[in-house]
Design a protein around this nucleic acid. Sequence first.
DNA 1: AGCATGACTAGGC
DNA 2: AGCCTAGCCATGC
Length: 114
Amino acid sequence: MKSQLHIPLRPSAPPTFFSRVYALVRRVPRGRVVTYGQVARALGAPPSAARTVGWAMRASPDSVPWHRVVNARGEIAQRPTTGYHAQRARLKAEGVRFDRKGKINLGKYAWKRA
DNA sequence: AGCATGACTAGGC
DNA sequence: AGCCTAGCCATGC
């Protein structure tokens, strides 16, 4: 069954995993990217929490540079929405290069200090 | 309080 | 190297 998508953000909500994800992603500098699993580990959660990170990005507010989060293979995560091109365009605008298969060289563009 | 969901990952073939 | 499968975790209903 498809669950309804509610934006969980509430101004006075207590610190949740989501809000901590946002706080971290906001620190990712221009022209760099991080993976979902990387974010999870940085928050002290196991790599398996990467799915939840992805879920958090789905509901991310505009103040979060969601386009700088990619999957462990350096690809833009596929999703039901049509945000693929928007994310790719934003990254390219920041100088991130994509190879012929649309993959990013994580060794070069990944933000090491997550 | 319990269960289905998903912008993920690691491991096998 | 590329495709498929089975875990995993926070959230929402």
